[in-house]
Design a binder for these strands. Structure first.
Ligand SMILES: [Zn+2]
Ligand SMILES: [Zn+2]
Lengths: 658, 658
DNA sequence: CAGGCATGCCTG
DNA sequence: CAGGCATGCCTG
């Protein structure tokens, strides 16, 4: 079994690779803090780069987990930077993957985030201003799939559900991960929907997945280095094709192999390359158990035409390890949402900046020593918000103020309390002992909510919760760019509101978002935020689906025995709804709404309570382009940041196999 | 837990260390065959060396286990080559360690095999003709303890019985093995009883323990190599003393560190060195899980004054691994002799050659491909005998012929059959189903013997077995150098003989060996051989002890419930008799006799039956110097070969924890 | 090729 | 520092 929880600690690793590490020395600072600093400075560096506006699509997406002490089960931070050139039709800022939290699929930005259909005018524009973006030469190489104008796609053969323990290789579609034995040729196939220009090649380049190491070039361990006479002596990945070229980037030191790309032979759909990995993931003094990905870029003259990324694990027992990781992942998926005592929180920031003009931030990096994890985490999130705020334009701030004022007025009109359900059976199950029947402003509201999770009747009145009027309710579920001005010291209270009030607040959310095709997803987000901030009058699935415009799926939920939205905690949309015919749009909408329901509390004033809450997660976002319409702009350079952090806590007394 | 069963297979290892291996390429031949060839050619090479007669003591002792497939549990071959200079007093060829079979103590040749007391005339003799015998410069370095004229001894602190899992180091006196963490300074102490000449130093040199690798220099794996600026960059062992010198022998490539030796500080008994091991035993591309020993030689001007050898395991958890290996060893000791279905055989050859004159054997090495383990093992033993035969002198051959003739005459006088015990209960227990009541010449006799093991009554008549007259009965239990002329295709039959016949045959054995101090051990061996070749009339312990002249221990056996010699299978002399006051001489005599009883069948015509026999082991020996007396020689150069092979087979249906 | 060990290293 | 995992590799 192989998981990704275990990583070499920094100090021991530094000793191990002291001879080969060519990464910067800033890893000696406290890991987590430094991680973010490094990550952050990278982002800043990229956006400050003068080439930024000419980059067609340069997303950066990281997924890592640290903070491994204590109860923390998972902590993923995805940072995505995407620069998009908008044409006259406008390219909608797709946020359909916004709430994606699986760590094994972190890089799946939607294909339609690419600059338009093949052979459109954008492709010309792109090719006429080709920046030197060869994957190997970038300090922070992108690991985001991008089929590009030529429909570049990777293929690893017919999907298999399992493999013998020691097969030479096996691909897990679920994990999007290749498990491959060392020194075994592995056929990797590619195709393009259109034939790229002559001289196009595919570059295969391994990168470390975790931000601590992403700057370090992946190379073979000393044990497995080839003879100096071989061009590929230090390359992890070799290609059976003798004409393959082995590059070592002079500045980044990255080792990659470039293989001529030709369209598939007649009768075949794909072009196959036999690749060999020359080190184990576990190789001491080399990969050293650090997860890697392999970035395949379709390139021509250094210009990236497409990109496909897969995780790769080079190990002695690909079948065994695949099984282990898939099981691990399934356990994660299945059990975490069910865990009463487990808390998960996801925060996500998305910042879109129109144009490249913005004052250059202070690039000096400071180190803040913080004692205690709770304080540290709190400070980190504040820090993130503060730093991200610098990317919010004045227009966005103004817009936020307006929205804020309007919303507060609406909320003030709501009654603070109404009635409390007398049904004692609602407090059955795993509800904590201290479950006061009357709601107050005290912080244990999530415990109370946990006590209601198992209700299977349809109460006429039930809980709803929203923030107190004097705090910024949009702080973690913003529906506009102004959400950056948030108050992290926010407190939640629980209110019971009537159905009328619910619908009005939903309307409010709907109203605050512009309609129209380009802002559709944006509006969707606003609607989702509304459902969690202003609760439905009853917690029946029917009402909830109705509020989402998804009544047609009521039967499906009922068949699964789900009658109240409190039961939604037990759902796994990807799994439970995998076989159900449903437009992707709806699927995403439902998934987002469920996530919102699960994560009503993002931050409380007492950070330690994060470890005790029944279920908390949060998604904060900064949607850009809110003030834009297609008629307003002819061509826009847009930069989108997405920073998503998911943290999970494991409650001690619960066993893994509950 | 760490055992020594697991070894890298040859091919994978070759690939792993292809960059660093500087050993000969003959490892590509079949491992086992090649192992012996290599080993053998080494022996031949050493003895053919012109320097042989001037070498004071140059024993070679190997212990390894291969043949790991099938039921084989253990296979140790110890080869010892000792060249001894005999003074006027004569130095008896001590064979007190002859039956030692523990693989963890293979190198403990007796200290009195050294050339006499300190400051004797030999020391002068030795120092006036100093050969270049620095441990590092020898292709096949000795790993035999030798305190030498100065009483050189190693000390690893107060013995401990156990240690915490991850202590930086711990020494197991039982295993004579140091378990030490990588990169942790380990204090190793030495003392001498006399102060050696100025300029004396201690050389620490690691060697591989197994003959497959013993020629290869031990060096760090590429991962753990130091910077080229360090003299010790490739040395496994480093010393904290900056004045230590790091040698790399130009011809052998061996890496060693030489540390100045000074007598202990006043008030201390030992001189301490802080040594550090820079690679794990498991290091890929380096030690690669190959067991090592460290040879500490007290040297002066390249001359070896003393030698101390310990096994070393560099690992991350010294305490854990020590516990594991000690447990493993205890299990081996305790359980193997008890196992009914397990068979163990030990063969041991000892060849002593007087003087250095002997025709140079053909040094060409050929490879015989053999299909099937049984055939292979059979052929290997034959090969060994044949090759060892070339060391037998003509005098020895003549002596053998004489003995042979005399013995055959005696045997012909014995009745072939008498009666068969009617006690059906003798066939209880683990006896195989096909257990014919009447004895014939068929080959399944060992099965029948197994059926008799559990008898706990004292039958008036019981089995005895010896070889048919037309075969050479001394083939595996020789009592003289002529034993080399053996017939390995020998067959055994079972006879029942009377007690009178037993004692007569014992007398025979006794008569054939000369009396006197110098040949005492020789005589003892002959007696032992006699007890197994001509069986006692009854199988009671009393009779057996009486025949050995050890009646005084009858009570001890009875207290342990042992009443027949068949029960001796269940005894472990070293353990069961550890606390019993008994002269070492008697202990050895008993032990040898028990071994003989256990191993009546050494070779059968059906090799596969080796895997099925209840208990078989054998000791063959070639005692040298049989014709010598102290008065005949003033000074003698003697060379003694000892080749001992121990093989154990595990029967499938028996569990380890029976 | 499945079972399982050996063994460095991570976690509490 | 003990428990236990991760993972290359050996064995049947
Ligand atoms: Zn490697
Ligand atoms: Zn090493």
């Amino acid at each position: 079994m192989s998981g990704d929880q275990k990583q070499p600690n920094c100090s021991s690793f530094e000793r191990n690779i002291s001879q080969t590490s060519d990464a910067g020395g800033n890893l000696s600072q406290p890991l987590s803090d430094d991680t973010f600093s490094m990550l952050w400075s990278q982002l800043v560096g990229v956006t400050d780069n003068g080439n930024i506006n000419s980059v067609c699509a340069n997303p950066v997406d990281w997924n890592f987990s640290e903070f491994q002490g204590g109860d923390l089960v998972e902590n993923n931070v995805d940072v995505s930077l995407q620069q998009i050139e908008l044409g006259p039709q406008g390219v909608p800022l797709d946020i359909s993957n916004f709430t994606q939290t699986q760590s094994f699929q972190p890089n799946m930005l939607p294909d339609n985030a690419a600059p338009g259909p093949p052979m459109s005018e954008y492709s010309t524009d792109t090719t006429t201003t080709p920046p030197p973006t060869s994957a190997a030469s970038q300090a922070l190489p992108s690991n985001v799939d991008y089929t590009g104008d030529y429909g570049f796609e990777i293929y690893l053969g017919q999907p298999t559900s399992t493999a013998a323990k020691s097969v030479s290789w096996t691909f897990s579609p679920t994990l999007k991960k290749l498990f491959v034995d060392k020194d075994k040729a592995c056929p990797i196939m590619f195709k393009t929907s259109l034939e790229p220009p002559p001289g196009t090649y595919i570059r295969a380049m391994p990168i470390f997945k975790k931000p601590e190491y992403v700057q370090e070039a992946v190379r073979r361990c000393p044990n497995h280095q080839g003879p100096p006479s071989e061009r590929s002596a230090h390359h992890l990945i070799t290609c059976s094709d003798p004409s393959a070229l082995y590059d070592e980037d002079t500045t980044t030191g990255r080792m990659s192999v470039a293989m001529a790309y030709n369209m598939p032979q007649v009768g075949t759909e794909h072009t196959t390359y036999l690749l060999t990995f020359k080190c184990f993931l576990s190789c001491v003094g080399g990969l050293n158990r650090r997860q890697i990905q392999t970035v395949f870029t379709l390139e021509n003259s250094g210009q990236v035409l497409g990109r496909q990324v897969i995780d790769v694990r080079v190990c002695a027992c690909p079948g065994r390890d695949r099984k282990g990781e898939e099981k691990h992942q399934t356990e994660k998926q299945n059990k975490k949402p069910l865990k009463r005592g487990q808390s998960k929180m996801t925060q996500s920031f998305s910042v879109t900046q129109i144009g490249g003009k913005r004052k250059k931030p202070d690039e000096e990096v400071y180190c803040i020593m913080v004692k205690g994890r709770a304080n540290y985490e709190l400070l980190m999130r504040i820090k993130e918000s503060l730093e991200l705020m610098s990317y919010v334009t004045q227009d966005q701030r103004n817009q936020h103020k307006t929205d804020q004022t309007r919303l507060q007025q609406q909320i003030h009109n709501m009654p603070r309390f109404s009635s409390f359900p007398s049904n004692a059976s609602q407090q059955q199950g795993a509800s904590p002992p201290n479950n006061p029947p009357l709601l107050t402003n005290q912080p244990s509201i999530t415990s109370q909510m946990a006590g209601l999770h198992r209700q299977d009747t349809l109460p006429l009145h039930t809980f709803a919760r929203h923030q107190t009027p004097n705090t910024n309710h949009v702080h973690d579920h913003c529906d506009g760019p102004s959400a950056m001005e948030v108050d992290h010291q926010v407190k939640f209270t629980e209110d019971v509101v009537s159905s009328q009030e619910i619908s009005s607040s939903q309307m409010l959310a709907g109203q605050s978002s512009p309609s129209g095709q380009r802002s559709e997803d944006h509006a969707g987000l606003g609607q989702v935020a509304g459902t969690s901030q202003v609760s439905p009058v009853d917690r029946s699935i029917g009402s909830w689906l109705g509020s989402l415009g998804c009544q047609q799926y009521l039967d499906i939920f009922n068949k699964k025995g789900i009658r109240t939205i409190d039961q939604l905690d037990e759902i796994n949309l990807e799994q439970d709804f995998a076989g159900i015919a449903m437009p992707q749009q709806h699927r995403e909408k439902l998934w987002k709404a469920i996530l919102q329901l699960r994560n009503p509390i993002f931050l409380t004033s007492t950070p330690s309570s994060l470890l005790r809450t029944g279920s908390n997660a949060s998604t904060a976002s900064l949607g850009g382009l809110s003030g834009l319409s297609a008629s307003q702009v002819q061509r826009i350079q847009a930069t989108r940041f997405t920073l998503k952090q998911t943290m999970s806590f494991q409650v001690k007394e619960e066993k893994e196999d509950t």
